[in-house]
Design a protein around this nucleic acid. Structure first.
Lengths: 203, 203
DNA sequence: TATGATAGATGACACGGTGTCATTTGTCAA
DNA sequence: TTGACAAATGACACCGTGTCATCTATCATA
């Protein structure tokens, strides 16, 4: 979490700093990102940066978390739109994600994150789908899901189902970047795997 | 890949260097690992290290790849033992993995790797299951799998099935560390998710 | 308006780490 | 004995992070 000083900043200065961070974290992955670049772009002193953030990681996860929050809203939205059909919702969500990605900066930001996934990034990413477990206790999501459509017998199984789906979705998203798939290929692969999940893999 | 000089080393010296690297990479994740520590333990000069490896990453992925090769053999073994039953084989493999983990050094090595997963680590990890795509063209694996047991209609679907299973297995393995699950809990969770994959998630 | 206190800004610098390179040492064949 | 090649060495250039003593701005209060 950024320090209080960061949130006390005048809106304009804060936005300019955010922009500078997004720039640097889109340019290279976290471990190569340099604070010198950020403060130069944002036109603040090195010392100031450390007034706002504990360290480089702190800044990075703040930016990442902002992204996650935006995406989480989109997913909730899709669940509502599709009357709780988990598969419809996740597919629509995945579609949205790819559609919006052509923005070069955002594309590179994701790319750098995913190809150097630290566990924390994966966790945050999953929160997009699994919602924020601490805040709403996953209830917001599970309440929205129409269980009639799922082959499950307990709450515990529902949790596992969500795990499975987000694991597969995540992996698909990573492959979009590593194999440099077109949007069409990525969607196709995603649909095939979701369909396999639905109907079951064993004969 | 290590340089030729590394493989020219007398066995004893090479082993001692390997041991020193394993020690350091078990102590902390890659990005915190220090070459100073490695050369001190192995009692070689800093310059020598760079005769053997291009850089820190080079050394790390060599150690990781060695691990992966050992594990891959185990998985193939399990596939043979279970007459090509993919689910039986992966479950037995996962079981083996957990059983062998109590060795503190190895446990920490995995832990550091998984909680700071770079994409390359995930890729190497998947190779354990998906075999080395370049060398054997995945054929070695796919030939061993008994397709009669699977609900698939094409080779392409088989590839997707393997993707799904390794994504879910990987995620389970990561959770073993993040949630600090006991072996029993980890196995239980793994079995539930495999069973869901088998029977299908949709009603 | 003057004062003091508190929050924020600053950049020089200590520290530590990586990878390089000129030089030395060892080995082995002719 | 010589020369050529492979390997070993450690000082060092370079770069980046996070700290800290010091300076500046703001603002409530007397």
């Amino acid at each position: 979490m950024p320090k209080a000083t960061f949130f006390n900043l005048p809106e304009k200065k804060r936005q300019s700093l955010i922009k500078a961070m997004e720039m640097e974290f889109s340019r290279v992955p976290l471990f190569e990102a340099s604070i010198a670049n950020i403060v130069k772009t944002a036109e603040i002193s090195r010392g100031s940066f450390y007034q706002y953030f504990k360290d480089k990681e702190d800044a990075y996860y703040y930016i990442l978390q902002e992204q996650a929050n935006r995406r989480n809203k989109q997913f909730i939205q899709q669940l509502q739109t599709h009357q709780g059909d988990l598969f419809e919702a996740i597919t629509a969500f995945y579609y949205d994600l790819l559609i919006e990605l052509p923005d070069q900066k955002e594309y590179n930001f994701f790319r750098n994150a995913l190809l150097n996934v630290t566990h924390q990034i994966e966790t945050i990413f999953n929160e997009i789908i699994e919602s924020n477990l601490k805040k709403d206790g996953m209830e917001k999501i599970t309440k929205l899901i129409n269980r009639e459509l799922l082959n499950i017998e307990s709450d515990s199984e529902l949790t596992h189902v969500i795990h499975i789906i987000s694991a597969v979705a995540f992996r698909n998203f990573v492959e979009k970047f590593t194999k440099e798939l077109s949007d069409e290929e990525a969607i196709e692969s995603f649909k095939v795997e979701m369909s396999l999940l639905k109907k079951g893999i064993a004969r």
